[in-house]
Design a protein around this nucleic acid. Structure first.
Lengths: 244, 244
DNA sequence: CCAGTTGTTCTCGTATAGAGAACAGTGTTC
DNA sequence: GAACACTGTTCTCTATACGAGAACAACTGG
């Protein structure tokens, strides 16, 4: 781990996901270093065009180069443009929150989300990383992904709620079921009162690309999903897979 | 300048703009450090999800987080989605290369391009940075941008070709003309045999957002642009400005 | 006009980044 | 099938450069 680079990357993320442009002082205390040091990091980021400084307010905001680099990332471009309209239609139809995520070595990375349209709505923040063993999408990745993803299971499984599955043998058995049935649920495993239903997005060759998850309270999304709901989800993921 | 962060950012860009996934060795000699050190940097980038490693080939490629961050950059999202279809139509109509760029403190940053559709075609690489004083788009930014952009003129003006304007007073006079006429040209100032014509993209409040440039050989794009061509360019930039 | 903010520039001691070598895999070649 | 030529990864050690802290400059608002 390169410490200085780590700091710069944290600063970059901070600026990227901040609601408003940030000043040196906020950045400094955000990453926990001295103001002067933060300034040096910001200058480095500016030299690379990753960040630029508003000439009027002298606050720092994200530069255009980040956008350009983002265009080069395969997942986003393809998946989101294809999936976005389909996700919207299923959300409007079912009223549940819809989440698109892709696998990373240790988590399910949330690329895009649509919150549910209930008065009390449930959402997932894009950019968050769901644990592999305690989320529906994570379990999809464990079940359908390459062997390297299951490496993460060697370490003890942290408990998110009392219902989180922390026994490795039980989890492995569940993964078998998931592979067989083609979907995963996680009733109150990530958060009490909340359930999720997820299915994999596979390309034509059967390779795992990502997953679509539906999130809802246990009231709206039962632990045993009704067949009609499953069908709807499967047609969605199959359509996305075909259009890749 | 934070050296370690600089190295990591160079590596990140290298991976982002590489044609194919890269290995540790290529990265190391690309940025000029030892293999072991490069490995440490790559791990740091991976920890942040900026980069990930193909489990099969163990080559490094761009991670999904970069895409997500790119979505947050204001310029790209808005400008490119609005401008892209309009740029395409003007390219097909005129046959000239079309370039969309935004201002940075020291250059015109190229966000998106369309190469000309001639047999011998001319293009501009996205991500490149055009000098402010020796390119049509750069001169647009100097003329229409904030005062801070003109700070760059305090330093001596490098000569790109024999025709590059390197005399500050002459350049300032030209900027006056550009402001008055609403367009800039740069015949053979950036590259011999090539001319460019550019106009600013202004939002409703008149603030400079970016510029559209047309690039062609001096044969296809005369130093004195015909009125019809100017009209076409002005309607394009005006349309983009309105849709912001 | 002064107090309390900003962002920026210093200096200096210490943590750390990078060179280099050794290690561990993988595929190629003879 | 064994030696080879590559990969990516891990290690040790020292010159280096990072970050704490303080001082500075430039604004803002009471």
């Amino acid at each position: 781990m390169v410490r200085a680079a780590d700091v710069s990357l944290r600063i970059l993320q901070m600026i990227a996901f901040a609601e408003t442009p940030l000043g040196v002082t906020q950045v400094a205390q955000g990453v926990g270093i001295a103001k002067g040091a933060a300034h040096k990091h910001l200058r480095t980021l500016m030299d690379h065009g990753m960040v630029l400084q508003d000439p009027l307010t002298s606050l720092y905001l994200l530069g255009p180069k980040i956008w350009l680099m983002g265009q080069k990332a395969p997942e986003g471009q393809v998946l989101s443009e294809i999936a976005a309209p389909l996700m919207r239609s299923i959300r409007d139809e079912l009223g549940l929150a819809v989440v698109l995520s892709v696998p990373t070595p240790k988590s399910a990375f949330v690329l895009a989300t649509l919150p549910s349209n209930q008065p009390i709505n449930i959402g997932v923040r894009p950019g968050s990383e769901l644990l592999l063993h305690s989320s529906a999408q994570g379990k999809i990745f464990l079940a359908f992904g390459g062997r390297e993803l299951r490496e993460a299971l060697r370490e003890p499984l942290p408990r998110a709620t009392p219902k989180t599955q922390t026994q490795l043998p039980n989890l492995l058995a569940e993964l078998e079921d998931i592979r067989r049935l083609g979907y995963a649920t996680a009733p109150e495993e990530a958060m009490l009162g909340i359930n999720a239903l997820a299915a994999p997005i596979l390309d034509r060759s059967g390779k795992l690309i990502g997953s679509i998850g539906l999130i809802g309270s246990i009231q709206h999304l039962a632990a045993e999903p009704p067949p009609a709901l499953l069908d709807r989800l499967f047609t969605l993921t199959a359509t996305i897979g075909k259009r890749l």
